[in-house]
Design a protein around this nucleic acid. Structure first.
Lengths: 212, 212
DNA sequence: AAACTAACTGCATAACTATGCGGTATTTAC
DNA sequence: GTAAATACCGCATAGTTATGCAGTTAGTTT
């Protein structure tokens, strides 16, 4: 039995969700709240398995609520359910720790399916939003010139904080040889400093410090 | 009618997929190949709407194939279907441009549902992989000390390439005042240079150059 | 042949970064 | 009162970065 919590200020929507979620054999709504504050004061907050969270709420916003939940009730899986389909809301919610993101016009079938998905370790996201999220992993195709393998290698080294001299020692070039490549990198990335090159290189998925 | 292409070196698997995909009213397999090279030489390659792509293929790998498709047939939606559930394969595939990622043990129902999802602008991903992908957006919780708002602001400025003096002018501090904060940032992030701070700040989702 | 390009190198120099050391002012706790 | 922590500031200095200018070598193109 998946225990569901709903945090949504519109009471008609809240009751509508409650009704069709409770209709499912394996789901039960154990708490339904008009605001985060109300939810956090309840006795059931730590018994919820999956929470459906609106973003635009009175008082504390849904995103702030996710931050709070992540800190105080980290085992609750939170799905955002909202009208906001802009990047800021999407990525702020994911950054805060939401595991799913649904547009409010989602069908009852899709909602219960999403709850099960989230409970089973998945990440239910409305399709066009999911595509938007996945697209952020794609290597940028809008650079006029691609960096060579050598340039990418050097950019990776820049991101580790190494000096030109240390990089040169590692790849068997003089300091000025390294600098020559770095000039090319800056030109291709249309930046003017090491800092900009690193930031842009990571943002455009040319390098990835977590995995390189 | 969604036109499907299959690129998979195991012929039994290929035929199995073909059979149940063709069984659907709205799906049809218009091409089935044992390798990327074979697929790219075919006359139907540019008619495919959704391609199911293995990663471990003879000759060109599936990920290299995605890179090629993205360049030559950018309208084809590619779903990886593979046994590899490690980060490198996942993120290399997404980086290359795959819109979906399925573990091979996926059920026939899930596969056809994924094809429709991808065709309709979504991003079908096996649940535990999707969760892993979404988790990369979460702000890191493993830092011993959180950066203050002021420190985050300064880190954002560092990533733009501004000098300490320019940053100080912007936020009404002396160069040495800025430097004082920067020392604190380095300490909290456990880094020793501007470059490392920027790379780590982006990786840990403390700052996001695309949106800041 | 000459011209062009890319990779590597060098030198000079101004600006910038990071470190060490020191300080003041304010707030909080004992 | 004292002590500790935080935010801001200052100075000196060595190391590093970025720019401008120049060069050599090898390969490719005209």
């Amino acid at each position: 039995m998946i225990k569901v919590g709903i945090i949504e200020d519109n009471e008609y929507m809240r009751e509508g969700w409650e009704t069709f979620i409770d209709f499912e054999d394996d789901l039960t709504v154990i708490g339904s709240f008009g605001s985060c504050e109300e939810a956090f004061e309840s006795e059931v907050i730590n018994k919820i398995n999956v929470a459906i969270m609106d973003i635009g709420l009175p008082g504390m916003s849904g995103i702030e609520g996710v931050n709070y939940m992540r800190e105080h009730h980290p085992d609750v899986n939170i799905i955002m359910a909202t009208v906001h389909d802009d990047d800021d809301h999407i990525f702020d919610a994911l950054k805060a720790g939401a595991v799913g993101y649904l547009m409010k016009k989602v069908t009852p079938d899709e909602m219960v399916s999403a709850i099960r998905d989230a409970h089973n370790g998945g990440s239910p996201i409305t399709p066009n939003i999911a595509r938007k999220v996945i697209a952020t992993f794609q290597k940028a195709a809008d650079l006029e010139e691609e960096l060579s393998e050598r340039e990418i290698q050097i950019l990776k080294e820049l991101a580790t904080g190494r000096s030109y001299a240390a990089i040169g020692k590692k790849i068997f070039l003089s300091v000025d040889g390294v600098r020559h490549h770095i000039r090319n990198i800056y030109q291709k990335l249309e930046v003017h400093s090491r800092s900009e090159a690193i930031a842009k290189g990571i943002s455009k998925r040319i390098i990835n410090p977590d995995r390189d």
